[in-house]
Amino acid sequence: MSMKNRLKVLRAERDWSQAVLGEKLDVSRQTVNAIETGRYDPSLPLAFKLARLFELSIEEIFEDEQAG
């Protein structure tokens, strides 16, 4: 089961394309797309990279649906 995330919204707020975000994260556009659409959950290092880039905590980007 994949986690929900706010990546698409955060990216749109900054007017970044998937390719631009991919460049900033040093990953492919396909990877950004896969994370946004919930087909892939990023590793912890990539999640931290995202959090640093958006100046948010990981929990503010990703939602743990199993949390109580």
């Binding site: 040093d26 990953v27 396909q30 896969a34 892939y40 590793s43």
Partner: peptide, 8 residues
């Protein structure tokens, strides 16, 4: 050398 998703 691929990123984690592409490698997977």
């Amino acid at each position: 050398e691929l990123d984690e998703y592409m490698r997977a």
